[in-house]
Amino acid sequence: MKFSQTFELLPFLDTTLSLAAAFVLGALIGAERQYRQRTAGLRTNVLVAVGAAAFVDLAQRIAGTTEAVRVISYVVSGIGFLGAGVIMKEGMNVRGLNTAATLWCSAAVGSCAGTDMLAEATLLTVFVLAGNTLLRPLVNAINRIPINEQAAEATYEVRVMANRSAMPTIRELLVDRLEEADYPVSDVEIIEHGPEKVEIVATLVSTAIDPDEIEAVITEMEKQEAVTHGTWEGSTKN
């Protein structure tokens, strides 16, 4: 049996310590994720950390430090596929990015444990937990700050409802008025609303606006007999 030839007590104990450290540290990270009811919770983060530690430890025992470094690079790229599985797109919103980043960090913790750098693995775990807990109040505080329309990078649309028969004239007038206000138009879309009404949607090139200037343009457009009403909206970039 090759087991009797390959088994060495001290290296085995070393591997046991590495895997145990990866298990405990991964559990700490995963417990916080589980408490937050995230897609990748306790078990997933533990398995990622232990798996990374096992691969790195195995490479180091078989071929030394050079191959361990090579395996670490594979772990970094491989965990990307796992992280992609927890990222979900819902309309304009993307969810799961933080969970995917946490899995990436769990793999880093496991890699440190696999190379017997237990102090570094513990330190990294502290930083990961701090990032997911201590920064949460700061994130909430920032999210409650009203967006400054003049400073935000966003896509802005000016919408005007008009009679179908007057659409070409109103469309040209809207573009002219926006350009006179120094808001060039990148695209104009016509949306039909029944047999008599159309909605003219002008997308602005600008990524920052003065709301008062846009309101002035809309007020002028609403003075036109063929225009029912006008409005504008902006969607901030993520």
Rank of each mutant, 00 (worst) to 15 (best):
A108R: 01
L13T: 01
K2R: 15
S77L: 11
I147T: 08
V46C: 04
G85M: 06
R43F: 09
T99H: 04
I72W: 05
I72E: 00
R33D: 11
V128G: 08
I72H: 00
L28W: 11
L135C: 06
A21F: 08
F23H: 12
D14G: 11
L178W: 00
S18R: 15
W104H: 05
K89S: 10
A52W: 00
S4T: 13
V128H: 07
K197C: 02
P195C: 03
E189W: 03
F55M: 14
A52Q: 10
T155V: 08
I142Q: 12
G78E: 10
P146Y: 11
L25F: 14
I214W: 00
A113Y: 02
L25C: 07
Q224R: 15
T15N: 14
A31K: 08
T44A: 09
D212C: 00
M1A: 15
Q150N: 03
D212L: 09
N93L: 13
R33K: 07
R177C: 02
A21K: 05
V205A: 01
T133A: 14
I218T: 12
L13V: 04
E213L: 00
G85W: 06
I209L: 10
P146W: 14
G78A: 01
E192C: 05
I147P: 01
V76N: 12
M117I: 02
V126I: 15
A113M: 04
S73G: 07
F127G: 11
I218A: 03
A108M: 07
A121C: 03
I200M: 08
R36Y: 06
R33P: 04
G91C: 07
R70H: 03
I79A: 02
L129E: 03
A202V: 02
M88H: 12
N132G: 09
V128Q: 03
R159Y: 01
V71A: 04
S73M: 03
V217L: 07
I147W: 00
P168Q: 14
T122Y: 08
R43V: 08
A59S: 10
A21E: 12
P146G: 06
K197W: 15
E8T: 06
G83I: 04
L118V: 04
A202I: 10
G131Y: 14
K237M: 13
N238I: 14
V69P: 02
T6G: 06
T203L: 12
T44W: 12
A31Y: 15
P184Y: 02
K89W: 01
A166Y: 15
Q224C: 03
A20E: 09
G51L: 07
M117N: 13
T39W: 00
V160F: 02
T16W: 12
Q5C: 00
R164L: 14
T203K: 13
M88S: 09
A59R: 04
V139F: 14
R70W: 02
V185M: 03
A166N: 13
L47F: 07
G83L: 06
R36W: 01
A152E: 15
E32S: 05
E233T: 13
E215D: 11
M92E: 00
G64S: 08
T39N: 06
